[in-house]
Design a protein around this nucleic acid. Structure first.
Length: 642
RNA sequence: GCCGACAUAGCUUAGUUGGUAGAGCAAUUCAUUCGUAAUGAAUAGGUCGUUGGUUCGAUUCCGACUGUCGGCACCA
């Protein structure tokens, strides 16, 4: 057999079943090879091959290796569970982005957390045996016979056509496509993490199985660093930081309805104030529409048909009303309230719209998923010839916004679904072309999801990546050919005829609740000076001697609209400094004899031990500049939470 | 909504064959007035989520409810 390795062609003698040849290659390459790729396709090390091609090794350092190892670990888990619970029925056990899981039907037995330890120990036993993981091709009939006692596997097999493969290790075997590590001895450093419920085939009509999540690494260090990353994420949890910093709370009297506390509301007001500024600058007209509107409006918009189960309703004077779950119909009523000329377009109506949606109780999650939230919504009504400019400007605006909060992002374009769409193909094609070009020109990471658009138009989604590498979907830009039709929106064109405007929905932050949750975790609560709830803490060294000066300083800073607090409590300086640092306040000023004498301040910036003395005027200048330039307080990527 | 776990002081939490609870931080008072991440002492603070049941007796065992957490489903 001939392979190309590192650009060189090598010839190998084929062994009994192909594996010897590859083990030879392995030997020759002197690498820790788990599997290989031939012309880009992955194969097990023991998978016999007959053809020539470009051969690449998958060794432990390659990006595919983690996936393969975790997949094999899920098999090891199944082997162990089978040994301990012979009646358990196995469904599916794939590798996922950060580990693996296996969905198992334990019958009437309720698996306990303690059982995980037992299973782990059993897995270690099997790992020590270091059994080969052997791939075998069987006929569909043979497969159905082998798995006849497992209805899940039978269902899977019945959906399969062509080659059916099973993988054997010792006397355990499982239905699987592969690829796997050569033997169970490769699986050494793993942990079973959590138990969860999951519906068979992801359908809530089906039975719920027990899902065991785990993670597997090639070295102890890797496993530990992955665990550490999770610990780090826990420390940044916005629910914890929200409590520590007094940002928000959720009462049991209002599940999913957050309360904003003074610090959180200040933070939000600052972001809102920035949002109003940027909206003015980018030519938006800001409006506000009622949160309760009659049911007929929601019938016209189509929301009633689709989402009535998730809408809160009420009766007023015997007439049915609903609390708005979206702002678009309100915006459209504003658009339709006047006769519009082509000269009026583009009309950009923005709104901080408070919406309510009845989310399932199990979906609620801190500020990330709530039942009442404020969207930074806008609806742009424009002519077809204006669409491109609008999109290009929007992309600029989005870029500026996400950069401001230290968030990386990528763009996903979802295009026309195959069926069930409305509007002319012509407009779909044109707008998709405009969206594609604008995204490509923006130079940002950009992907297309063909057929994933809504029935009423194509959309761009913005996937934000925080410093922990987690991805959040916040911003969207959606073209809508549906609502302008339903509400009969028109404008009078140059030629005096009525035309239908194109409607764009857009939200950058998505919702303030969710977005503040995300940036709380991204910054770990160390918000940039411009939006930080408290910007400056003033600490007099001796509150008998320096208090007067400190109070005057606080008053001066307040005159300059800074958010300042004085801490003249009866505590040592070190203690008060500690508190200020723990509250992640950008600047802590220490006022002692030196400062009083020189009419100066000595400041310490958050997360920095340097002490710098400057005159009060210089400090004001410095702070103003930082607020003006909206500098990040910490680089989220490098900031380690205590 | 579904599967599972959890619920003890403002916060973090200890509390096993069932006999009504301890601690640290925070708070209050007193002393201390201190130069950059925790000064000391004292005091107060708990229907052990709610509610039924078992029991002579329940924070502890069982059930229901509410809420939270980890997932699943859902997310216009």
């Amino acid at each position: 057999m001939k392979f190309v390795v590192d650009g060189k062609s090598i010839e190998l003698e084929k062994g009994k079943n192909g594996m010897d040849a590859l083990l030879l290659v392995n030997e020759a390459a002197k690498k820790d090879v788990l599997a290989y790729k031939l012309d880009g396709q992955e194969f097990d090390l023991f998978h016999p091959i007959e053809k020539e091609g470009k051969l690449e090794f998958i060794n432990k350092d390659s990006p595919e290796a983690f996936h393969i190892l975790n997949h094999s670990t899920s098999h090891l888990l199944a082997q162990a569970v089978h040994a301990l619970f012979p009646n358990a029925l196995f469904a599916i056990g794939p590798a996922i982005e950060d580990g693996f899981y296996y969905d198992i039907d334990f019958g009437d037995y309720v698996l306990k957390e303690e059982d995980l330890k037992k299973i782990e120990d059993k897995m270690k036993e099997f790992s020590k045996k270091n059994e080969y993981i052997i791939r075998e091709v069987v006929s569909k009939e043979k497969a159905l016979e082998l798995f006849k006692d497992n209805p899940y596997k039978v269902e899977l097999i019945n959906d399969l056509d062509g080659e059916i493969t099973i993988y054997k290790q010792g006397d355990w075997f499982d239905l699987c496509l592969g690829v796997h590590v050569p033997s169970t001895g490769y699986i050494k450093h793993f942990k079973l993490e959590t138990l969860a419920g999951a519906y068979w085939r992801g359908d809530s009509k089906n039975k719920q199985l027990t899902r065991i999540y785990g993670i597997s690494c090639f070295s102890k260090e890797d496993l530990e660093s992955k665990e550490a990353l999770k610990e780090e994420a826990k420390k940044r949890d916005h629910r914890k930081i929200g409590k520590d910093l007094g940002l928000f709370m959720i009462s049991e009297y209002g599940p999913g309805f957050p309360f904003w506390l003074p610090n959180g509301w200040t933070l939000r007001r600052n972001i809102e104030s920035w949002w109003y500024d940027i909206s003015d600058k980018y030519g938006y007209k800001v409006i506000n529409t009622p949160i309760i509107l009659s049911k007929e409006l929601w019938i016209t918009s189509g929301h009633w048909d689709h989402y009535k189960e998730n809408m809160y309703t009420t009766k007023i004077d015997g007439r049915d009303f609903a609390i708005k779950p979206m702002n678009c119909p309100g915006s459209i009523l504003v658009y339709n309230s006047e006769l519009r000329s082509y000269r009026d377009l583009p009309l950009r109506l923005a709104e901080l719209g408070l919406v309510h949606r009845h989310e399932a109780s199990g979906a609620l999650n801190g500020l990330f998923r709530v039942r009442c939230f404020t969207q930074d919504d806008a609806h742009i009504y424009c002519r077809e010839d204006q669409l491109e400019d609008e999109i290009v400007t929007l992309l600029k605006l989005y870029n500026l916004t996400y950069t401001l909060f230290g968030l990386d992002y990528s763009i996903v374009l979802s295009t026309r679904p195959e069926t069930g769409y409305i509007g002319s193909i012509d407009i779909w094609n044109k707008s998709e072309a405009i969206l594609t070009k604008a995204c490509q020109d923006s130079g940002h990471e950009f992907k297309i999801n063909p057929g994933d658009g809504a029935f009423y138009g194509p959309k761009l989604d913005f996937k934000l990546k925080d410093c922990m590498g987690r991805v959040w979907q916040c911003g969207t830009i959606q073209l809508d050919m549906n609502l302008p039709e339903r509400f009969n929106c028109t404008y009078i064109d140059k030629d005096g005829t009525k035309k239908r405007p194109i409607m764009l929905h857009r939200a950058m932050l998505g919702s303030f609740e969710r977005f503040i949750g995300i940036i709380t975790e991204n910054f770990a609560g160390a918000f940039p000076c411009w939006c930080a709830p408290v910007q400056v803490k003033v600490l007099p060294v001796n509150n008998n001697i320096h208090d007067e000066f400190a109070k005057k300083l606080v008053a001066t800073l307040k005159e300059h609209k800074f958010r300042v607090e004085l801490d003249d409590s009866d505590e040592k300086l070190g203690y008060r400094m500690r508190n200020a640092q723990m509250k992640k306040i950008p600047y802590t000023l220490v006022i002692g004899d030196k400062e009083v004498e020189n009419n100066s301040v000595t400041y310490r910036r958050f997360n920095d031990e340097k002490q710098i003395s400057v005159s009060i005027d210089e400090f004001i200048k410095l702070l103003s500049k930082e607020v003006e330039e909206k500098t990040l307080l910490v680089d989220p990527k490098n900031y380690k939470v205590n």
